[in-house]
C-alpha cells in the first residue's frame, strides 16, 4: 500500500519556506551584485527581497490556529526552531528594511554616498539572508521521526534553491521594471547575462544535490522517496519540478547566455516564472514526502501512524 503524503503542513507552509527563501535569495543576489559593481540591478534585487520575506511571514501566520497571537511564537528560542526562525527572519526584515530605506527609497542618498557604511550594512543583511535560507531547511530537518527531512543536505538544497529562485524573482520583475520605470542600461544587461550563467551552475548543483539527497534518503525512507519517484507525487516531481522548474529554465539560460546579448524580455519572464514555480513546487513536494517512520512493534510488525 502506498504511503499517504504528509498533510499537517501544506501549501501555506510551503509558501512560507519558498517566499522566505526567495526573498533572502534576492537579497543575496543583490548584495553580491553591489559588491561586484552592478549597482542598478543590485538595487532592484534588494528592493524585491524585503517585501518577499515580509510576505512569507504572512503565510506562516495564516497557517496558525490563532494568528492573533503569532508574536508569542518567540517565547522558546532555547529549543524551538520556530522561535529561532522568528528571530532570524525579524532581524533580516529589520536590517533589510534599513538597507532598502537608506539606499534605495526614500532616503537613498544616505548609503549611496557612504560606501563603507553601506558595505557594513550589506554584510549584516547577507549573513542574515544566508541564515534564513538555511533555517528553512533546519526547521523541518531536525525532525528525527521523519527521515525524509532529517538529512544535512536539506539546508544545502534549500540554500541553493533560494538563491536560484532569488535570481528567478529578479528575472521576473526586470521586464516589469523596464516597462514601468524605464530602467535599462548596459549594466543591467551584463548583470543579467552573468546571472544566467550563475543560475545554470546553481541549477546544475541543485540537480546534483537532489540526486545525492534522494540516494541518501532512499535507504532510510524508501516509502517517502517512492512517493516522489514513482508514487502519487511523481508527476509533479519529474514533470513539474525537474522538467519545468529545473531543466527547461537551464536550457533557456544556456541559449541566452551563448548569445551574450541583452536577454530578450520574454525569455526572462518565462525563465523567471519557471524558476519561481519550480522552487515553490520543490518545497511543496518535500513537505508532502515528509512522512513518519513506521512504528516498529518488536522488529516483527510495522504499523504506520496516521497523517
Amino acid at each position: 500500500m502506498e504511503a499517504i503524503p504528509q498533510s499537517v503542513w501544506r501549501w501555506k507552509i510551503a509558501a512560507y519556506l519558498f517566499l522566505a527563501g526567495t526573498g533572502a535569495g534576492a537579497l543575496i543576489v543583490g548584495i553580491l551584485g553591489d559588491f561586484t559593481g552592478y549597482v542598478v540591478s543590485a538595487k532592484i534585487s534588494v528592493a524585491l527581497g524585503v517585501p518577499l520575506v515580509a510576505l512569507s511571514t504572512w503565510f506562516l501566520i495564516l497557517d496558525l490556529g490563532h494568528p492573533e497571537k503569532f508574536f508569542t511564537a518567540v517565547l522558546h528560542p532555547s529549543t524551538s526552531w520556530i522561535s529561532r526562525g522568528f528571530l532570524i527572519v525579524s532581524a533580516l526584515l529589520i536590517s533589510g528594511g534599513v538597507l532598502t530605506i537608506l539606499w534605495i527609497w526614500p532616503c537613498g542618498r544616505i548609503l549611496d554616498g557612504n560606501q563603507g557604511l553601506r558595505m557594513a550594512v550589506e554584510i549584516i543583511v547577507l549573513g542574515l539572508a544566508v541564515a534564513t535560507c538555511v533555517y528553512t531547511g533546519i526547521l523541518i530537518g531536525i525532525v528525527v521521526s521523519r527521515p525524509f527531512w532529517n538529512n544535512p543536505l536539506l539546508p544545502v538544497l534549500f540554500l541553493i534553491s533560494a538563491v536560484s529562485t532569488g535570481i528567478g524573482g529578479l528575472f521576473f520583475i526586470t521586464p516589469i521594471v523596464r516597462a514601468t520605470l524605464g530602467v535599462s542600461s548596459s549594466e543591467t544587461a551584463r548583470f543579467l547575462i552573468h546571472l544566467e550563467w550563475a543560475d545554470m551552475i546553481l541549477l546544475l548543483s541543485e540537480g546534483i544535490t537532489i540526486y545525492l539527497y534522494l540516494t541518501v534518503v532512499y535507504s532510510r525512507a524508501p516509502e517517502a522517496a517512492g512517493l516522489l519517484l514513482r508514487g502519487k507525487l511523481s508527476g509533479m516531481f519529474w514533470g513539474g519540478f525537474l522538467g519545468a522548474g529545473l531543466f527547461i529554465p537551464a536550457l533557456i539560460e544556456l541559449f541566452d547566455w551563448a548569445d551574450q546579448k541583452t536577454p530578450p524580455l520574454l525569455a526572462l519572464l518565462i525563465t523567471g516564472t519557471l524558476l519561481l514555480a519550480g522552487g515553490f513546487l520543490m518545497r511543496l513536494l518535500i513537505l508532502a514526502a515528509g512522512i513518519r517512520s513506521p512504528l516498529i512493534v518488536r522488529a516483527r510488525f510495522r504499523v504506520r501512524p496516521g497523517f
Partner: peptide, 13 residues
Amino acid sequence: IGCKYCMIACPYG
C-alpha cells in the same frame, strides 16, 4: 497558537 509544529515533531501521531 496552533502552529502544528508539535504534530510534525511527534513520532507517534
